[in-house]
Amino acid sequence: MTPLERAEARFGWKLVAPTIAILGLLILYPLMYNVYLSFFDVQLNGSKTFVGIENYIKLLSNSDYYSAIATTSLYLLGTVVGTTLLGLAMALLLRDPFMGRGLVNAAIMLPYVAPVISVVFGWQFLFDPISGVVNYLFVDLLGLWSERSNLIGDPDSALWVVVLFDIWKHAPIAYLLILSKLVSISRDQYEAAAIDGYGPIGRFFHVTLPELYFVLATVVLLRLIWNLNRFEDVYLLAPNVETLPIFTYYQAFTGVIDQGLAAATSVIQLGVLSIFIWFYIKKIMKW
């Protein structure tokens, strides 16, 4: 290396040093410390007793853990499929310019940027058994249900409310990703397909979908990664829907506090998450 190249490298390290320090100290180190904690019985006040793999044994024999895994799986399935399909539909609908597209765009992006804490109250009111519009619509107006019900109060139905909420909130980001790819498909391809005798549906399956394959995979993977960690959106809307993050939170900070157990849950979850992230970095980012 020449002196100038060395100077450049030094400058590079200097600039990135604060970032490395902060991220290392407050993310990478805690992740490792978490593994360490998972072998201890940890109290809220910080006192620890070594218990070996007892936390893991407790966890794996806890039926609530398995039900949290099942809830999480349903949650992931529902949100990934819903978000991707709605995002795709939105992108197809809004691809071509029309009067007022900017306004429509702003409107549909709003759920994505709005604070969870605010919008959950709107949702709770919508699903309120007495005053909510949803019950009014399905019971009084359409007569589909025989009586008003508390959809958020019952964990089974609340799961689907939470899924719908997530789709509402995150379809916009799927829409943006898909749209940016969609508008880059050249017109020529559609014209060629049209000349070859394909109608709109044929063009969708033979031109659009193959081009979108990659971006759809990206959307699915990103949804999996983000939603596996999703806490606020679920907890604040329906605290009775116990996905893994909520389960961990309850273990760590409420009721009979068992932070060691919570650490063990996080370790396993990090393992699964790492697989998704690895996949994303390798296959999508192609690094």
């Binding site: 993310i27 992740l31 978490n34 940890v42 960690n229 970095i281």
Partner: peptide, 19 residues
Amino acid sequence: VLFVYMVGGVLLMVPLYQM
């Protein structure tokens, strides 16, 4: 950085609190 970007806060709450 990309990895860290995707690790959610949920996984960090216990160790950060303990630290």
